[in-house]
Design a protein around this nucleic acid. Structure first.
Lengths: 204, 204
DNA sequence: GAATGGTTCAAACGATCGTTTGAGGATACG
DNA sequence: CGTATCCTCAAACGATCGTTTGAACCATTC
């Protein structure tokens, strides 16, 4: 049908990689279209502008991430026997999975960049596509941590998010060693994150 | 003496603010020099290039931050009665102070950007100016958390750093309210961070 | 007061940016 | 076959980028 679907997808994939490497301003459309093997004008034809392309790069991955997080949370929401670790797992593992399939761990780096860019339009876009998921998780955390005030809870979720973003985007000193498979490394990352975050959330 | 000291300082201050707002690539030398009230050519005259200017922006603040952190740590290093919270305080409070004086909470945002940019040269520069401080703190954490393996300790320090950077750069949802003074807010931030990080580091 | 060395200035340089244009190719339908 | 629709392409547009240039300024020194 739409013979341009391939072109659009190629642009999106190349854009995700280049934005992660060079940033939104640092990656030019000429580098981007050359990497994708398409004509320079194709970006403006299919996406209207570079800014709209940036939004679509986010949308493609965030739709995945949100759906998976909510699906994972659904199994635990409101249940008596749910633990803090269960909810953290539903929050963390889809993000780690996302950075694994989809062609590489690039998107979380793009996301971390977006946080750092402090672009108001982009933040609003992220809030619109992200807000309801965060609210659901916050409600579940509140249920499992009844001793925390609302302010204290917001603070701690914020700090968990910081630790998550940091770890997932590969900022840190921790790198996968060659004798550890990527799946194993991902599992270890998830376990470290969940253990750390759960303890931080439960802090007296 | 050096009548250009004023010009250099004005450039550095304006650069710090603009880099925080627009990023290293997004802030042009024309915006920068206009904000500083100096001639366009002054940047290349005093700093050689834009890249060198970026490095100097970091150096000016990191030298402060490193000195204050080490001075704060010195009071606790190796002492029997030192607590985890003491060391975390020595790590966290100088950073919060830095973002307070020096004309605004802009530098930590610049630092968070630098992490996100993944620029190898800049990361090497940061590592060279930062590494020995991190090693001293790591040694102290290891002393106070003898139950942790080296790998586990590295992981947790990495996660603490992520939470710290996130909170200090003002990413999160937490904003200072108008009825709270900045000093009070800074103190609350430090307490939340220390409580959360200490619990995360002590996780079973 | 002429000369010196450090600093500032307006102007221009070539390169690269995002975007637009208009012609041409490809495919489907009458 | 003719036409309409979607897409691709090379080329160019104006704007802005970091950097360089050479003249002017200004304090200090002989």
């Amino acid at each position: 049908m739409n013979s341009s679907a391939s072109t659009k997808e190629r642009i999106l994939t190349a854009a995700e990689a280049l934005f992660a490497q060079r940033g939104f301003e640092g990656a030019s459309l000429r580098q981007l279209t050359a990497a994708a093997g398409v004509n320079l004008a194709a970006v403006n034809y299919h996406f209207g502008s570079k800014d709209h392309l940036v939004e679509q790069v986010f949308k493609r991955r965030l739709d995945q991430l949100n759906a998976r997080r909510l699906a994972a949370l659904k199994h635990f929401a409101g249940l008596q026997e749910t633990t803090l670790e269960d909810v953290l797992s539903a929050f963390i593992r889809p993000a780690l999975d996302l950075s694994h399939d989809g062609g590489g761990g690039l998107f979380m780096r793009v996301l971390a960049r977006a946080f750092a860019e402090h672009d108001d339009d982009l933040r609003k876009f992220l809030s619109d596509n992200y807000g309801h998921v965060m609210r659901q998780f916050t409600a579940e955390f509140a249920r499992l941590l009844p001793g925390l005030s609302k302010e204290e809870l917001y603070w701690r979720i914020d700090l968990v998010t910081g630790a998550l973003t940091h770890a997932m985007s590969g900022f840190g000193i921790i790198q996968r060693k060659n004798d550890v498979s990527e799946i194993t490394h991902r599992e270890q990352t998830a376990e470290h994150l969940i253990r750390f975050a759960a303890a931080g959330l439960r802090a007296p």
